[in-house]
């Protein structure tokens, strides 16, 4: 069964003036445990598509069904709760909370979910060890390198035990060593824990690692290849 089903998805910006079809009739589905990359040139609509899958943006038309729930029909409050429980996010600029340590950044979502302190601490430790930062749990983001910060962001995205992780250009700000390291970690988590990862990326290294590559251009899927 599909984790995500996208049916006839449209997103039109500036509806009253010049219409821009950022997403123009996309149909896709993702299975549990996929390691997929959405690629395409700038302005092709890949980030808009990712935002709509993550419930951050609403479609002008079409349906997004995540685990049987049509998320574009959810009210704002329910949608925030849905995101918290089902979707993990990794952003290009890491977006960690600068006043919290690595451990606290990972714990944060579990705190919002109401997970007990004991369980939070246990899972945080496991995740930070899994991303290779077991020795930096008490470091603040400003004391970590870009690659390390992005690894904390991956741990944070996984903390809530989401159905899938959406990563928007996760390697755009990283050097090649950090990129390789981060991709290895995500691939390992995908293989060992069957976590679904969907990337939007320009990065050839990500495309190379991905098991499925969806190419988007002018808001349409022009190819969908599985390796």
């Amino acid at each position: 069964m599909s984790v995500i089903e996208i049916k006839n998805l449209h997103k039109i910006y500036n509806e009253s003036e010049v219409k821009v079809h950022a997403v123009n009739g996309i149909n896709l589905s993702f299975e549990q445990g996929e390691f997929a990359a959405i690629v395409g040139p700038s302005g092709s609509g890949k980030t808009t598509l990712l935002n709509m899958i993550g419930g951050l943006d609403s479609p002008t038309e079409g349906q997004i069904i995540v685990g049987g729930t049509e998320i574009n029909k959810l009210k704002a409050g329910k949608l925030i709760d849905f995101r918290m429980r089902n979707i993990g996010f990794v952003f290009q600029a890491y977006n960690l909370i600068p006043v919290l340590t690595a451990k606290e950044n990972v714990e944060f979502i579990m705190h919002l979910q109401g997970v007990s302190k004991q369980d939070r601490e246990k899972r945080t430790k496991e995740l930070l060890i899994a991303v290779g930062l077991g020795d930096r749990i008490n470091s603040r983001p400003s004391k970590l390198s870009g690659g390390q910060q992005q690894r904390v962001a991956v741990a944070r995205a996984l903390a809530s035990k989401p159905k899938f992780v959406l990563a928007d250009e996760p390697t755009a700000n990283l050097d090649s060593k950090s990129t390789e390291n981060l991709l290895d970690i995500m691939e390992k988590l995908n293989k060992e824990e069957n976590i679904t990862f969907i990337f939007s990326t320009h990065d050839a290294r990500v495309v190379k690692k991905a098991h499925r590559v969806i190419t988007v251009e002018d808001g349409k899927v022009i190819s969908d290849e599985r390796k």
């Binding site: 704002a76 925030i80 995101r83 918290m84 952003f91 600029a93």
Partner: peptide
């Protein structure tokens, strides 16, 4: 703005 956007994206509700 960006940080608040991130917090709302990852599931921090408006009241929080």
């Amino acid at each position: 703005v960006k940080e608040i956007g991130m917090l709302m994206a990852v599931g921090m509700n408006r009241l929080r």
